[in-house]
Structure formats: C-alpha cells, structure tokens
Nucleic acid binder design. Structure first.
Lengths: 224, 224
DNA sequence: GCCCATGAGATTGTCTACAATTATTAATTT
DNA sequence: AAATTAATAATTGTAGACAATCTCATGGGC
C-alpha cells in the first residue's frame, strides 16, 4: 500500500529542470517549429538564465529525442520524415500492444469505470458533431494514456507517455486529426470490452490493429 | 541509393562525448558498481576534464537510464530491482518481436548467411564445452543484435542496442549466464529458419517466446 | 562568370569562481 | 544516554569569461 508513497519524493526544482519543461512546451506546442535552430545565447536570455542550465535542458530534450544536436554546430528541434514517424508508430504498435495486455491483468474496477465514461463522452461528442475528431485528438490520447498507465509497467509508461507521445505531438500539429473518428470509437469500444473481460491476448491484438491502422495511414501518405 | 551516405557524418569528438563513452564503459563493465555515487569533482579529476563536460556526460547517461540523478544530491549508477529488470524484459519481448518481424522482410541474403554461420559456431561451442554458455553470453547477444539491425528500423535499433541492452549488461555481470544454452540454441535455430522462410509472423512469435522465457526466469528468481 | 581561399563574426565547448543546498559533525538540552 | 539543534564541510547549481570551431561574407584566381 505504501508503494505509491515511496515514489512521492518532491524533487526540488532547479532552473535547468524548470526550463526543460518550458522548452518542451514551446517545442510540442509548435512555438518553436520543427527543424528550427535553438540558440543557447538567445534562449538563455529569453528565459533569464545562464547558458549552463539551458544546456542541461537541451541535453535532456536530446535524450528524449525532441532535439537533435551536432558538435560545434548547435541544436535543432527534431524534424521527422514520414518514414521516421512510421518507425515510431511501429514501436508504438508493439509497446501499446503489451501495455494493453498488461492492463487487462492490472486495471482496477474504478479505472475501468472511468474509462467507460470517457468512451461515452467520446461517443456523444462524435454523435453531436457529426463525425468530427474528438477535441483535436486529445480525447483519443486520453484513452491511450489511461490504458498505458493501467499497465503498471513504469518503464513502459515512461517511454510511451514521456518520449514517444511528445514526438508524435510535434508531428500532429502539422497534420489533420483522426481521419475516421467513428471507426476509432468502435475500436476503442472493442478494446474496452477486452479489458473488461480481462482478455489480455485480445486486448493486445486489438490495440495493435488499432495503432497499425494509423501507421498505415502515415505510410500511405504521399510525398516525402 | 545515397541514403546511407547521408548519415555518414563523422561527428567531431568533444571531451563531453569522449567521457560519455568512458563513463559508460566503466558502468556497464562493473568498474563503477550499481548504486554507487558519482562525484562530479572526483570523476572530472580522474578523466582530466572540467566539471562542465563531465556533467554533460552524466546528463546523457541519465537519458539512457544508466544513471539516476537527484537535485542537489548527485548522481548514482542505476540499480535495478528484479521487478524493474522484468519490466525491461517485457518491453524487450515486444520490441524484439517486431524487430524479428521486420527483419524477416528486410534481411539480406548475405546477412542470412552470416547469421547461419554464427549459429553454427554457437552450436560447435556448446557441443565442445558440453552445454556451457557461449562466450559469457556475448554470442547470444550477437545473434540478437544482428536481427535487430536487420530490421532496418533505426529507432528500434537505437532503443534496443543503445539503451536497453546496456541496462541489461549492468545486471548481467551479477548473474550467471544463460541457464540452458542448448535450449537457447534450438530456439535460435527456429528463429533463423523463420527468417529464411521470410515468415515474419512466425519469427515474431518465436522471438517473443524466446525472450519471454528469459523474463520468466527473472521473475521466478527468489528474493528482492 | 564560377569556384576556391581567406578572414571576420558568431556560436558552441570548456574552465574557473561563486552561490545555494545538502550532509556531517559537534554541542547542547532533556 | 538519546535526541535535537546549530555550525561546519562538502557537493551540486549557476554565472561569466575565454578558447576552439564553424559559418558566412568578401575578395582573388581561373
């Protein structure tokens, strides 16, 4: 019961850590657009800190894949080609698949109820807005986040939610949202049913199909 | 056709990058044992550099998961519990599964021949040394590395070979090698056959079973 | 007119010093 | 004697200055 309390170490915020979050926000929100250079001097002045902490922030974001750095040249916001994005989705397919499988084992009844309500909201929204994407896809990601979290695998959660999803968010702003939200809703419902039935194998299979469809859409997109 | 040449950017080596490799070696080789503190001043003196580049090295290793840092306290070599290691193996199971699937599509005939020879060497070694683990497991990892590389998915390659495997190597030195090398050899042969047959689905299934067995051994290990 | 070399400017890499925080030790109190 | 508090030492966080490298513009040669 105390396993949650153990992790409750309130880390003191250093400038470097604060700026890491700010810089990440600027990147995933599109404020700093993909491929644009990141000047240490300029950003350190903008955030009102020295170059040291800012370099630490850049280093951290590089570790997350949001930033690409080249010696003696500098850092740039990452720019993903269609193929690289497809590679990420291939990984996501596999990882969220196991996340769904583990979630079927570990999800609590309370979490299941919440998830069901989320799907209901999603359904009403699609109905009322006649097939429009749910809240700019945020609702869709909410669904996925919850299942990932319910897996209980801390490393899986971290990789998917704190690394891959940020990368996907960068790309997402340059693309239209879910192409067929009704279809997504149906698949969500099926996955939910599998979780309710505690059928891990089916949950994994369905999740992989669900994400695989998105990957294929990316791969089939013309140009680049 | 020039896609390979594009990536051939010979990055200049900065002190920070050199020391990152040195420090990583010291960690994965066990020179710096798991859980031990990493003093910035001490290490910067040992490597003959300033604290700045050393901090960069630590930051990078933190991004790879080899080092854990706490504000105002310092960095330590990561220490994995049995459960955390099992979590990593769960991810590896999924990721190497898709790697095998992709490899079945993309592996070249030349790579297949090399892989076959590696298995033959492995087989002779096990025969001659009567069931002993093959070269302290390095041969086993060689097999896995090649399949991962053959997948062609750059991000998958990077995550598995440059992050997860280093973590596993830290743990490995405190554990005995493969428990049943004959069994591993059989499974390797089956995976190889699936790759030869270009049967991606089967390759994935076999790879997942293969790694799943290792994960279960970890989970069943007593204590901690 | 185009290509290559040279040099000024700008940016990143590194070092040193200082500030802030934590860990440790010693003294004091109950 | 044990526990608490205060002072000291050690370590990390941050800032600023200098060195090394790259970029870009200018000028010269073919």
């Amino acid at each position: 019961m105390g396993d949650a309390a153990e992790k409750t170490s309130v880390k003191p915020l250093t400038q470097a850590r604060e700026v890491t979050d700010l810089l990440m926000q600027d990147i995933v929100s599109g404020q700093l657009e993909e491929g644009s250079r990141i000047s240490e001097l300029e950003l350190s002045r903008r955030y009102g800190i020295g170059r040291g902490p800012l370099r630490e922030a850049i280093l951290r974001l590089e570790g997350m894949g949001l930033v690409v750095r080249e010696p003696h040249v500098g850092a740039r916001v990452v720019r993903l080609s269609r193929q690289e994005l497809a590679e990420i989705f291939t990984m996501r397919e596999a990882l969220e698949g196991v996340a769904a499988r583990e979630a079927a084992k570990n999800i609590t009844d309370a979490e299941l109820i919440d998830l069901g309500q989320l799907i209901d909201r999603h359904g009403r929204y699609v109905e009322e807005n006649n097939g429009e994407a749910y809240m700019d896809q945020e609702g869709d990601y909410d669904f996925h986040y919850r299942i990932i979290k319910a897996s209980g695998n801390q490393r899986l959660i971290n990789l998917l939610c704190n690394e891959l999803y940020h990368l996907i968010r960068i790309y997402r702003k340059t693309s239209k949202g879910e192409a067929r939200p009704e279809r997504a809703l149906i698949e969500h419902k099926m996955i939910f049913q599998a979780l309710q039935d505690r059928d891990g194998e089916l949950a994994e299979l369905l999740m992989r199909k669900h994400i695989g469809r998105a990957r294929r859409e990316i791969e089939n997109a013309i140009e680049q």
